[in-house]
């Protein structure tokens, strides 16, 4: 096929390159303090402890508009000892709030899955509050790539 001059010089429409942006590159992350404030408001005076939470998310998001995350908290989930709430935050989004799961002893397990929007590579944070008021926290970094061309 021979290209004519007009075709040679035409600019391609649509999004470009090997590299399709999943989400807008121009979004201003929330101030770090906004994330901290949300955690503080959730946890109150309780100390933030490590452990008990497993946070599953893809290493690299397939699509920043819909990133699956699963939170699982170790707990007997009985009437006297259960996970009451898990708050999920994303510290690189314009607003850090994502979702708060509300569990009950009838949940059987403190496990929940949803799909979230991540504007850029950032930490997903899960903060779990137990029925006795103790609070646990876990983080996972999720990479939002502009799209490679591997293979």
């Amino acid at each position: 096929m021979e290209l004519n001059r007009r075709e040679i010089l035409a600019l391609s429409g649509g999004s470009i390159a090997c590299f399709a942006l999943g989400v807008s590159a121009v979004s201003t992350p929330a101030l770090a303090s906004a994330t901290d404030e949300r955690i503080k408001a959730f946890a109150g005076d309780a100390e933030l402890r490590e452990g008990r939470i497993s946070l599953t998310a893809p290493e690299i998001a397939e699509n920043g508009n819909t990133v699956p995350i699963e939170v699982k908290v170790e707990s007997p989930m009985t009437k006297d000892d259960y996970v009451s709430e898990v708050m999920v935050l994303a510290d690189g989004n314009p607003m850090p709030g994502v979702i708060t799961f509300l569990f009950s002893p009838m949940s059987g397990e403190a496990t929940a899955t949803t799909r979230i929007r991540l504007a850029t590579t950032q930490n997903v944070i899960a903060v779990a509050k137990m029925s006795n008021g103790s609070v646990f926290m876990e983080k996972k970094n999720v990479k939002v790539t502009i799209g490679g061309c591997g293979g």
């Binding site: 989004n93 899955t113 949803t114």
Partner: peptide, 14 residues
């Protein structure tokens, strides 16, 4: 608002 379009929720119950 950071939850994706067509919200999906998966959870358990005893």
């Amino acid at each position: 608002p950071a939850v994706s379009a067509n919200p999906y929720l998966e959870f358990t119950m005893k």
